Structures are given as C-alpha cells and as structure tokens.
Amino acid sequence: MAGFTSNLSAQKHDYTWLFSEQYITSNDWGEASRLDFNSSPPVISAPDSVQMIFGGTNFTMSNAEGGLIFYTNGCEIHNARHQLMENGDGINPGDVHDHQCDESQYSPGYTVPTQGALALPKPNTPNIFYLFHIRSAYDPILGAPYGALIQLLYTVVDSAQNEGNGSVVEKNMSA
C-alpha cells in the first residue's frame, strides 16, 4: 500500500465574529461585540470602532490564520480597520436596500433574510473571497421587507488591494 501525504491544514476563516444589538440610542451606534476564537477560551470584547448594526444579515470573514478581514450587514462591507471597504457600499441594491441601509437615519442593515450572507475563499487564491448575499423584496403597503427572496448575488473581495485594506472588485453579480 502506497503512503498518503497531504498538505491539508486547518483554516480559521470563521474565527472572528462580529455582532451587535439591533437598535441605536441617542443617534449613536449600538454596541457591537467581537467573539474571537483564536484563543481558548474565546475572548469576548466590545470594539469601539465598529459602526455597523447587524439586523439580520451578518457575516464576518477571517483569513486562514483567524485574523479579521471584512464583515457585512447586507448593506455594505467594512474592512478589518472598521472602515467602509473600497467599493464596499451598495450591495443588495433595490427597495430593501433603499429603506434599510440609509445611514442618515436608523439603519438596521438587511433584516430579511436572517443570515443572508456567506463568504468563501477562492480555492488556491488566498486573497480572493466570494461573498454570496440574498436580495429580498420590499412590500410598499406594509413598509417593510418580506420573505420573498428575489435573487442570489455574489460580490468578489480582494483583501490584498488598497494597501491590504481590501477592495470590492466585482459587486452584485448574478449567481
């Protein structure tokens, strides 16, 4: 029997989680929390610099070593420095985005569907990530989004661009 060798190694793309309350008080951002699985037990902290509310759609991407790369609330993508990533605005365009992603007022982020985003690294390309996200429908009579899912979209993030702060290189592509 021939020997089997493998270059498989553990990847930590899900080792950093960001989440927040769904409300804002006094025109200030709600308190965000960070759960970091890079140590045991995991470390919970409240980073001051997160300026995003995660109402329903929430995804955080880490690199293979577990370091934060980017995160989204279904409206926009922020980098590890908690800044809007270059070209990271305007994901999931349409009525729901127009009503739930307005930063001039309470912006809960994309609330329908819950967990409507997922990112995966491009195989054998450590800096390229595919962010899959679901665009949903808006009911003008109710004045709210509802469960009708209109379209599965994907956005491509290159984490090496913009001096390592990342950039969205393709956005809202039909899957």
Results as ranks from 00 to 15, higher is better:
60 T>C: 01
118 L>S: 08
136 S>M: 10
150 I>Y: 04
66 G>R: 04
160 A>G: 05
106 Y>D: 06
9 S>C: 05
6 S>H: 12
170 E>C: 05
128 I>M: 08
16 T>K: 05
150 I>T: 07
149 L>M: 09
85 M>G: 00
128 I>V: 13
113 P>L: 01
133 H>T: 03
69 I>N: 06
168 V>M: 01
3 G>R: 13
140 P>N: 15
68 L>S: 01
74 G>S: 00
22 Q>T: 12
127 N>T: 15
113 P>Q: 06
113 P>G: 03
88 G>F: 01
50 V>C: 03
39 S>I: 09
38 N>Y: 05
172 N>F: 02
100 Q>R: 14
124 N>C: 13
22 Q>M: 11
157 V>W: 00
153 L>E: 04
154 Y>Q: 02
157 V>C: 04
51 Q>I: 13
57 T>Y: 03
104 S>K: 10
55 G>P: 09
53 I>G: 03
120 L>P: 06
43 V>H: 10
39 S>L: 11
44 I>V: 15
75 C>Y: 01
51 Q>T: 15
85 M>E: 03
5 T>E: 13
7 N>M: 09
142 L>S: 13
37 F>E: 05
154 Y>P: 00
174 S>M: 11
63 N>Y: 08
42 P>Q: 07
19 F>E: 01
98 D>L: 06
1 M>L: 08
148 A>M: 09
159 S>F: 01
22 Q>F: 11
58 N>Y: 06
42 P>S: 07
56 G>C: 04
139 D>C: 13
101 C>G: 00
32 A>C: 06
61 M>R: 02
58 N>M: 09
172 N>R: 02
142 L>Y: 08
59 F>V: 01
51 Q>P: 10
82 H>N: 15
169 V>S: 12
67 G>H: 14
107 S>L: 07
153 L>R: 00
44 I>D: 08
102 D>H: 08
110 Y>M: 12
92 N>A: 13
41 P>D: 11
27 N>I: 06
114 T>F: 14
13 H>Y: 13
17 W>Q: 12
134 I>Q: 00
107 S>F: 11
159 S>H: 04
50 V>T: 03
25 T>C: 10
50 V>D: 02
173 M>R: 13
2 A>K: 08
41 P>E: 13
154 Y>N: 04
88 G>C: 11
100 Q>P: 08
160 A>P: 07
150 I>E: 14
168 V>I: 14
134 I>V: 12
128 I>D: 05
68 L>C: 05
16 T>V: 12
166 G>K: 00
163 E>Q: 12
175 A>H: 04
101 C>A: 07
103 E>Y: 11
122 K>C: 11
70 F>E: 01
17 W>S: 04
32 A>Q: 00
57 T>E: 03
5 T>A: 09
157 V>A: 04
119 A>P: 02
151 Q>A: 04
31 E>P: 06
84 L>W: 06
93 P>D: 11
25 T>F: 14
26 S>Q: 14
139 D>N: 15
43 V>A: 13
34 R>A: 04
26 S>L: 09
65 E>F: 12
128 I>H: 12
68 L>P: 00
86 E>I: 08
